Amino acid sequence: MIIKAYHPNGTPDLRRWLVQCDACPAQGPLLGSEEWFIPKNPDMFMYCPGCADYFTMRLISTGLSCAGCGNPNLKLKRVGHHPSSRTQDAVCGHCDSYLNPYTGWHFIDPPF
Results as ranks from 00 to 15, higher is better:
M1D: 12
I3A: 10
I3G: 08
K4H: 12
K4M: 15
P8W: 09
G10Y: 11
T11H: 09
T11S: 15
R15M: 13
R16A: 13
R16H: 15
V19E: 08
C21Y: 01
C21I: 04
D22K: 11
A26Q: 13
A26H: 14
G32C: 08
G32I: 09
G32D: 07
S33A: 15
S33C: 10
S33N: 09
I38Q: 06
P39C: 12
N41F: 05
N41L: 11
D43I: 09
M46I: 09
Y47A: 00
C48R: 00
P49Q: 01
C51R: 00
A52G: 00
A52W: 02
D53W: 00
Y54I: 00
F55G: 00
T56K: 02
M57L: 08
R58N: 06
L59Y: 05
L59P: 00
G63N: 12
G63F: 05
L64Y: 11
S65Q: 14
A67T: 04
C69F: 08
G70Q: 04
G70H: 05
G70D: 06
P72N: 13
L74N: 02
L74G: 02
L74M: 06
K75G: 07
L76C: 10
K77S: 13
K77V: 13
R78K: 15
G80W: 03
H81A: 11
H81E: 14
P83I: 10
P83S: 12
S84A: 14
S85W: 01
R86T: 05
A90E: 01
A90P: 02
V91H: 02
V91N: 03
H94W: 01
C95N: 04
D96P: 00
S97Q: 07
L99F: 15
N100V: 04
N100M: 05
P101G: 06
Y102D: 12
Y102T: 07
Y102L: 08
H106A: 12
F112E: 13
